[in-house]
């Protein structure tokens, strides 16, 4: 019994939706960053799913490698920003730290 493409896409879509909810519902900067990582991860699932059911080549996996590199780089920068935010405001709550100066 083979698994259809739709089943992979459903898993990707559910993870994407949960990541979006995490982005919107969380108040701390780290929670929002976790949501962004979840969204990138869901995009990876879709890339590889289409790759497996697509042209027979494996370009989707190459793009997945690039997405993982991008996620690592983005996490490093975002965590540096969060540390700077904590040093300036003393909190990482995005509702409290709402000034874009300093």
């Amino acid at each position: 019994m083979a698994i259809g493409l739709e089943h992979y896409l459903v898993v990707g879509a559910v993870l994407f939706a949960l990541g979006l909810v995490c982005c919107m519902a969380r108040r701390t900067a780290i929670g929002i960053l976790i949501g962004i990582e979840l969204i990138l991860n869901a995009a990876n699932i879709n890339l590889i799913a289409f790759d497996r059911f697509g042209t027979g080549r494996f370009d989707g996996q190459i793009f997945a490698v690039f997405v993982i590199i991008l996620a690592a780089c983005e996490a490093a920068i975002a965590l540096a920003i969060i540390i700077g935010m904590f040093m300036n405001f003393g909190t990482i709550d995005t509702d409290v730290a709402d000034k874009l100066e300093g």
């Binding site: 698994i3 992979y8 898993v11 993870l15 991860n41 990876n44 699932i45 590889i48 799913a49 790759d51 497996r52 996996q61 997945a64 490698v65 993982i68």
Partner: peptide, 14 residues
């Protein structure tokens, strides 16, 4: 768990 899903795709490297 996502890594295991990738494994079932036949993408062990990813």
């Amino acid at each position: 768990a996502t890594a295991l899903v990738f494994f079932t795709f036949g993408a062990p490297f990813i």
